[in-house]
């Protein structure tokens, strides 16, 4: 079967991120990818660490809690490099946990937006831009509400 020969003219390439004018739809799309892969790479190991700590007994659970949810007003900084590193890792883990909750609500909200788009709805320019802006804001509010409910009860 003869193949049609491509024309001699160089075909235009799809523009890269730095050339594109950013809009809400592409922002929420890349946010969906970042939060999804973040949850996969960081969230699932964290979930497994937690389940295995509960299954492992009180000592394993205390160790998990001591790393992931340390009392940041009571960190031990002195005694050598390992203490400084330990304190920094504890702070990083706490930030990671809060970040994971934000990633979860963001991925959930934009995932539900994808369900709507999958049935062919919500592609009108204004409506699409509106929900692209609303989903990440809604996710931040849900994250704040989640932590408020946890910490203020």
């Amino acid at each position: 079967m003869a193949h049609a020969t491509p024309g001699p003219k160089a075909r235009p390439l799809s523009p890269h991120l730095q050339i594109w004018r950013w809009g809400p739809a592409m922002a929420v799309s890349i946010l969906h990818r970042i939060t999804g892969n973040g949850l996969a790479v960081v969230g699932i190991p964290m979930l497994l660490w937690w389940v295995s700590a509960v299954a492992g007994g009180p000592d394993a659970y205390a160790k998990f809690a001591g790393w992931v949810w340390a009392d940041c007003s009571n960190l031990v900084w002195f005694g050598g490099l390992e203490f400084i590193l330990g304190a920094l890792v504890r702070i990083a883990l706490k930030i990671a946990l809060v970040g994971l909750s934000w990633a979860f609500f963001t991925h959930l909200a934009s995932g539900i937006r994808h369900f709507v788009l999958d049935i062919g709805a919500g592609f009108e320019l204004e409506k699409n831009a509106f929900w692209s802006v609303v989903t990440p804001i809604l996710a931040i509010l849900l994250t704040a509400a989640f932590w408020a409910a946890l910490l203020l009860r």
Binding site: G57, A62, W69, F104, G111, F115, D118, F146, A149, L150
Partner: peptide
């Protein structure tokens, strides 16, 4: 999509359950 539906159901159960726990002691 099918696993996403499963995620919605199970993770919302998980988050609500965490909120309903009185504390996070062992």
């Amino acid at each position: 999509r099918f696993t996403a539906v499963g995620n919605v159901v199970t993770t919302i159960w998980f988050v609500v359950s965490l909120l309903l726990l009185p504390n996070f002691n062992f």
